[in-house]
Amino acid sequence: MKKSADHLLFVFSANRVYKQLWLVILLLLVAQTAVAQQPVTDDQVNEVAKGLYCPVCESTPLDVCPTQACMDWRAQIRDLLAQGETEEQIQAYFAQRFGDGVLAEPPRRGANLILWFFPVVAVVVGGFFFSRYLRGLKLQQPAVVAAEPNLREETAVLPPTQAPQSDYIARIEAELRGES
């Protein structure tokens, strides 16, 4: 809420203004009907805390961290939830105060998009070069068949008419013979 004045001044987004208005209205409603309100459960708090990481302890999710600081942060989440803020709003609030580093999933913008593009690009581009490499390995095949006696041997073992399953058994039996 601290920054709302800045937002109204600099961001001419109708949507945002409405949101702020809604909040004000909600706050008024909450203030009036505080008695009738449902208490925020621990599960709701944890649900939000899961998306956040403790800014102090290394890589510990906020819903798990047992330190006093994190208990205070969870209490803060509870207050914000009681005020009717959504999960996204609360996460944005923490990110704004402590940096994007507290978010379990970095916001999908700017340099962070690498995290979602890279896996796809790596597999596609990598796959492209990999398949080209494989095809290159296979090109000279006709010459190779003659050069590799093993290949002829192995294909010769299987009469083409035989059921494909049986060559597997044949292999196992060949092993048995070879060993005993």
């Binding site: 890589s59 999710p61 580093g101 978010l103 379990a104 970095p106």
Partner: peptide, 8 residues
């Protein structure tokens, strides 16, 4: 700014 990559 420090980015954090969580399990999800």
């Amino acid at each position: 700014e420090k980015g954090f990559v969580g399990p999800t």
